[in-house]
Design a protein around this nucleic acid. Structure first.
Lengths: 153, 153
DNA sequence: ACTTGACCTAAAGTTAAGTTTAGCAATTAC
DNA sequence: GTAATTGCTAAACTTAACTTTAGGTCAAGT
């Protein structure tokens, strides 16, 4: 009695390679909103394959579920998202990525002059600045200071 | 009765900006190995300031405590690490970083041709390959596949 | 009709990296 | 010398992103 074009959770799992338990979890987090059939089982739509693929890719890039959820919430609910819808998301996505890459590169370059030289005197080093490379919250102020002396410690 | 040049945990915390509880935790993880005084209180050495600074910087770069521990284990225990010791670590460190930046950049470039075009057909897309951007374990095989059709989902 | 396999929910467990709490002991300050 | 501070340990709690378990229900094949 499954409408054509609908997928069970097992089928979706097989198509995406994402565990059934993870898919259920994603629903609790609001990443997907499957319908239910008469018996209460989840009915996914083909568009959900794309949605889940996006989730996994975004995770690889280091985004949290909350952040991904925010992005996905800009997709239309009524109709299946089209090329333009996904394109809009990709723009924001790319900007975030660019920023991350830049931060990382900057840090790496500083590294050469800081740890690289063996000084690690973080007071005068640019590395001391905790510019949040996706740090999780709940951890108070994480500032860094080195020692005053040049190499006595 | 504290030997000159020794630091209490509170002093180390003040110098590094790292919470006392975190410093104790780091000891349980083997990142630092303080001595104890007659009363059983921890006695740190000035070199530990540098050690902890390194830990925090490495964390900003996305390394786990275990990975950092591995790096630090190459430092000498007997004498205080010198410039050459830290320099050796910095070399490995930089290599890791370069690799990370490259992966990220590659992914970003693929993004333009994949999500950017709206297709997200991960089967033919290079983005599907989970080249581990520092994924944590304990999560089974995380592979990605998209749909067969071009844009029906 | 009946059995097997896929699904369901709720709750508990897992890992990383710490923080918080509780109940004491050692130091430091006055 | 005594009070206030700082430190100690052990154990429980926290968040993210899931997985595992327990105990039932639904659907599909024969």
């Amino acid at each position: 009695m499954r409408p054509m074009d609908a997928l069970s959770i097992g089928q979706l799992s097989a198509r995406t390679g994402i565990a059934v338990s993870a898919i259920r979890y994603y629903e609790t987090q609001g990443l997907i909103h499957p319908d239910r059939n008469a018996g209460g089982q989840r009915q996914f739509r083909r568009a959900d394959i794309r949605r889940l693929s996006f989730v996994r890719i975004a995770q690889r890039f280091g985004f949290s579920i909350d952040q991904i959820c925010e992005q996905l919430s800009t997709l239309p609910n009524a109709r299946a998202p089209n090329k333009a819808d996904w394109g809009r998301i990709a723009v924001k996505f790319r900007a975030e990525l660019d920023a991350r890459i830049e931060t990382l590169t900057e840090l790496r370059d500083n590294l050469d002059g800081c740890i690289g030289c063996g000084c690690l005197s973080l007071q005068k080093c640019k590395l001391y600045n905790p510019n949040d490379i996706a740090r999780h919250k709940g951890s108070g102020p994480r500032y860094l200071m080195g020692d005053k002396s040049e190499y006595s410690d």
